[in-house]
Nucleic acid binder design. Structure first.
Length: 568
RNA sequence: AGCGGGGUAGAGCAGUCAGGUAGCUCGCCAGGCUCAUAACCUGGAGGUCAUUGGUUCAAAUCCAAUCCCCGCUACCA
């Protein structure tokens, strides 16, 4: 495969919200971003993979009040936890992982805010909002609970009634009060909420109707279906202006005098992290990624984030500087269910990523969440199938091929092996291996990670079949030359596999490379094997060392995890 | 309620756009092999493709209606 022209690639992974630990659902939504980043680096492209922790906003302030600590303490605690889980446990290879509390981010956001204001894309409007005197804070819709004016349901939320499904205006609720699910008993019982006037900045989304419509029309084909459909429908209904400031003191200050008690809304500023983080990392080269139409941008997140990335962010980009690069590929994942039910943070019905990684190697999770990823529809995480797939496929098929061949060569042909005359079946196997990088690359670039990993496993299966047919462990007695050539063919295939699997299982890839001695595929940005993707693997090998790649998962361990779950 | 996705062997899924003997992985059963982490290889059992009606020589696939599951609906990140 000829090396294509190196491209400037931006991978924009959604910023996890720092008010609680990450569960497997978050990881499955983010994982594709790291696969893309690693793949493009191996291909030789200039990659900028950015994300960070989303640290501001009312939910964090509320959580802080409940624990009687500062919002900054909560945000910092989860920010550090996210870093450890994503980078250390799960090998995410960020070029920059920041936080919305970083000073460069704040300054960047304020600049954009001023620029939009100057161009008339932001305007102020007064509105009445419910206010709790005892909590001394405004209550946005979701924070209010009351009786539904349509069906009489007592615990309707301020934005929508869960019983009859109607959308509501919080001020229409009968007996409105602070939502006890959020505030517990901290709000005064039977308190009467006040309607107070508050002035806010609105983003003139309606002005970008045509630009956004054109964006989804032109590029929606490269987005996940749900993202494109949902955005199209939304644009067809007509874009409405929306407020981008909030009544809170936990957020980025508005860079205009006279708005002391108000802050910039998290969804306005968090998405700008893709720009500010890129700037921190790339410095003067920032334009190559952000102000070049030759760059390519991938957005990776869960489906609840779609509109913020396909409508609001593009509107901000177009409005503040028309040369800024707009989204190319949008990979919004569906949801991961847990034993058939939705993850629930509040009911503690979840498998937490950091706890998971205390019991299992992160590589196993990366494998499972890729083959079982919710790419086109919701999928299920079941402990039993996790154990079965890891033991049966990852270890049984892939790990076993590597281990059986490498250890055999190490033991019986310590001087090394070279590909000699190839039989027809050996030719077939090598052809399949030669095709692999191209196939896998196409699948990765189109966001079909399951298919990509599936094609890798298929080649490993073919390798096992070839070993079974040629039986080098028998043939080595009667026809040593032929047997060692067959073994070299197998090592050639394993070498190809070790590169192909790097975006998915980086540590495993590195381990296999170490069996061959010397050459390693590192996850670092300045990897010495940058550009290794698609290169023909060698045909001469000497095995320096071997060890099983993975440890099997005991059935008892799976059972124990399952029990821990039902005890919610 | 609106919108989007889905309903195919015990489980998880592909196939549906371009109609033509129903496929993959795991599990199960039998055999083989023994280099390998009871692994790997071969063969087998198991499905009225949610339901009903229509188009067609032919429908999992196209059309219509119905039922069920999941998600989203923007001041919850």
């Amino acid at each position: 495969m000829p090396a294509s022209t190196p491209q400037h690639i931006l991978i924009a992974q959604a910023w996890p919200y720092a008010n609680g630990s990450l569960h497997l659902g978050h990881i499955t939504a983010f994982l594709g971003a790291d696969i893309l980043a690693r793949y493009h680096r191996l291909k030789g492209d200039s990659v900028l993979f950015v994300s960070g922790s989303d640290c501001y906003g009312t939910p964090i302030a509320v959580e802080a009040a409940a624990q009687q600590v500062s919002p900054a303490t909560i945000a910092e605690k989860y920010h550090q936890e996210f870093r450890k889980t994503l980078i250390n446990d799960l090998s995410f290879s960020y070029d920059h992982y920041g936080a919305t509390t970083d000073v460069p981010h704040r300054e960047f956001v304020q600049d954009i805010f001023l620029s939009l204001h100057k161009k008339g894309h932001l305007y102020t409007k007064k509105d009445t909002v419910l206010f709790s005197p005892s909590l001394n804070q405004f209550l946005p819709d979701r924070f209010v609970e009351g009786e539904c004016p349509h069906c009489g349901f007592a615990s309707a939320r301020g934005d929508q009634c869960d019983e009859c499904g109607r959308l509501l205006d919080a001020r229409s609720l009968k007996n409105p009060h602070a939502n006890p699910k959020i505030f517990g008993d901290r709000a005064k019982q039977g308190e009467r909420l006040e309607e107070r006037e508050s002035e806010h900045f609105y983003l003139r989304l309606s002005a970008f109707q045509d630009e956004i419509g054109q964006l989804v029309e032109e590029r929606g084909g490269a987005w996940r279906q749900q993202a494109a459909q949902f955005t199209k429908r939304f644009v067809e209904n007509g874009l409405q202006d929306r407020p981008v400031t909030r009544d809170t003191d936990w957020g980025i200050p508005i860079p205009i005098d006279g708005y002391d008690g108000k802050r910039i809304y998290v969804w306005f500023e968090a998405v700008l992290g893709y720009l500010s983080a890129a700037k921190v990392r790339a410095g003067a080269d920032w334009d190559r990624w952000w102000r070049s139409d030759k760059a390519k941008h991938y957005y990776v997140h869960g489906k609840d984030n779609i509109l913020f990335h396909t409508v609001i962010l593009p509107a901000i980009l177009v409005g503040s500087d028309k040369d800024l690069h707009l989204p190319d590929a949008v990979f919004s994942s569906e949801y991961l269910l847990l034993e058939g039910r939705q993850f629930s943070t509040s009911r503690n019905y979840a498998v937490w990523a950091h706890e998971f990684c205390r019991s299992f190697d992160g590589e196993l999770l990366r494998y499972f969440l890729t083959v079982q990823g919710p790419e086109t529809s919701d999928t299920n995480f079941q402990w039993s199938s996790f154990g079965e797939l890891v033991n049966g496929e990852l270890i049984g098929t892939f790990g076993n091929l590597v281990h059986r061949i490498c250890s055999f060569v190490e033991k019986h042909v310590p001087e090394g092996v070279t590909v000699d005359a190839m039989s027809e079946s050996a030719e077939q196997l090598c052809t399949a291996a030669r095709q692999l990088h191209k196939t896998v690359g196409e699948h990765i670039e189109s966001g079909q990670f399951r298919k990509a990993l599936r094609s890798i496993i298929e080649v490993a299966e073919a390798g096992n079949r070839f070993a079974q047919q040629t039986e080098p462990w028998k043939r080595i007695q009667e026809d040593r030359e032929r047997a060692t050539s067959d073994l070299a063919v197998l090592l050639h295939v394993i070498h190809t596999l070790s590169i192909a699997v790097q975006p998915f299982l980086p540590k495993t890839s590195k381990t296999i490379q170490s069996f061959f001695g010397g050459e390693t595929v590192s996850s670092d940005q300045d990897s010495p094997t940058k550009g290794a993707w698609g290169k023909e693997s060698p045909t001469t090998f000497k095995i320096r060392s071997t060890a099983p790649l993975f440890q099997k998962i005991e059935e008892a361990v799976v059972e124990k995890q399952k029990e821990a779950l039902s005890g919610e």
